[in-house]
Amino acid sequence: MVQYWTAILTEAAIFGVLALGIDMIWGWAGDFDLSAYAYFALGVYVTMILTIGKPSPPVEYILGWHLPYLLAVLISVVVVVAFASLIGAVALRALREVYFSITTLGAVWAIYYLVENFTPLFNGYNGLSGLVDPMGGGLSYNAYHYLFFGFCLLVLLLAYLVVMRLSRSPFGRMVRAVRDDELAAAVYGRNVFWTKYRTYLTGAALAGLSGSLFAAYIGAFNPLDWRPTEIFVLYAAILVGGRGNPRGVVLGSFIVYVGFVELTRYIPSPSARPELGPALRQILIGLLIILMLKFRPGGLIPERLGTDDSRRRWSTGWLHPRPRASVKIPEASTPLSVESSDS
């Protein structure tokens, strides 16, 4: 039972890091990115090919350098950021909103089919397997897992602290200003593309980092492990917890991962119908996304508001009342009508 929970919570922690990264891109910068799961997968692949040995035919993949884990993590984050900088440069330059989403949707499927079919890269459809051992071996089964769980929690905590710090900083405020109205942000001297781009790359770095953790967690990875539709689980987690709020995002990923594991445990999955359990889970994810969007788009812990307190106040939704609604100034309360535009 303890092992079971360790496994689930480890996975939740890993995806918590990923969710923090995706939330920077979507929650802060407002770019609904569908290719982030490819960055995660790339993180897994690169970590694996860097830490496992040379391939033996018929398996083929590049590198196989047998590097220590932490070095591999560092390199894969760099590789992922470099890769994201290409996609971001194309998609963020002039495309926004649905056009950005469409482009990243196309990108992720293109990458997916490329990886699946171009075997010299990551062994194509059959994927990679091999041990990525961050602890250097020599540990008992249980000790290894508890230690790895602790390691994942530590990384999550660090990621959370970094993201939280950025979220409250002038940088976080500027990113949100660009999200809310990029024209006005440009009028006040902000470089819209560069702001979005930096946020995108930081998010991608977190995605790569979580991929590196996942590589150590799973031991085998192939394209079926990262169907691009899996990213909806992350978006469901962000929506549940609170878009734009790191605290909410971490909460959301634990709720969704642990909650769904627990829920789907009781769904009968007869051997004749192996697809039943996953399918029901996906349906629930879909429902969750729609219902959250419709009825509580802010999530359980909505985005923080920057106030004049030196201690930043948290708007915690139903736990505390929201900040006061606007106090109307009598002479300024006439609804504003926009006149017909000129030229």
Partner: peptide, 12 residues
């Protein structure tokens, strides 16, 4: 995003 959710539901 909502239609993505719907797509997930219908497909499954």
């Amino acid at each position: 995003i909502a239609t993505l959710g719907a797509s997930l539901i219908l497909q499954n």
